[in-house]
Amino acid sequence: MSRARRGTAPVRPPIRLFRNLSSKIAAIPMVLVGLGVFVGGTIWTVVYSFTDSRLLPRLQFVGFEQYERLWSTRRWLVSIENLAIYGIVSLVFTMCLGFLLAALLDRKIRFEDTFRTIFLYPFALSFIVTGLVWQWLLNPDFGIQSVVRSMGFPNFNFDPLYNSDLVLIGLLIAGLWQGTGLIMVIMLAGLRSIDEDIWKATRVDGIPIWKTYIIVIIPMMKPVFVTALVLVTSGIVKLYDLVVAMTSGGPGISSEVPAKYVYDTLFTRQNLGQGFAASTMMLVTVAIILIPWAYMQFREKRQ
């Protein structure tokens, strides 16, 4: 036995700060990013949204003036309205379609992998690519409209990208194409995590499949739905690239969205204070959606 191997062991507890030192050093990037960028940046933007900064940020406070101006700007109001319409419709369709596809794939079908690959691949593509492809498909002179017309329906009209009443439909078609795959995968994971025995039990009880979904499965999937909901909504708020690629906000200002308003105000119109006010409003929107969710999560954890 080697008994004299140890040196003199420290008798006192080491200084708190230096215990676990490597770990604290390794955590520096997290602290810098979390506090310095996320918290600090957010506070900075909110503070400067109360100033009259134009080309350069400066601390000349003007109260709520930027917000008043924001809410009386037509382009911002259109942006908000677009976002609300796009958001609600896209939410409903993404959830329904995502669940439907997941439920279909969950029926122990053949070629499940192939179908899943097909439904999900658009998610790998950027919004720019998505927007440009659909811009081409919806091109009135060469795309779907012209093909249908040439098939013997000369009066067929479908040119959403050139019609300010329909432009959101164009965006929705492309947005859903890109994003439903993700929700499908999440829903599928949720469906797969449901105990097989539940299906056996409902079969023994003779409950029809559609009814099983409605009264048993969907209520059990509540957390998955909530997650999907949060994911879709926080994605919608960020909607920007797709609009830029498909319509650049047009025709006119009919497809403007808040994220684009912020970018244009900050970087092309160089009206910083206004841009900060608009981005603060976006933050508020996200907070309104997220706080109830965070509260719910927190309560569930406590139980």
Partner: peptide, 24 residues
């Protein structure tokens, strides 16, 4: 585990704040 209070001696050495690998 870092103890809250007290002392631990192994083979006559006070190892309360010693690394696990050096406690023998």
């Amino acid at each position: 585990l870092d103890i809250t209070d007290g002392e631990i001696h192994i083979q006559g050495h006070n190892v309360t704040w010693e690394e696990p690998s050096k406690r023998g």
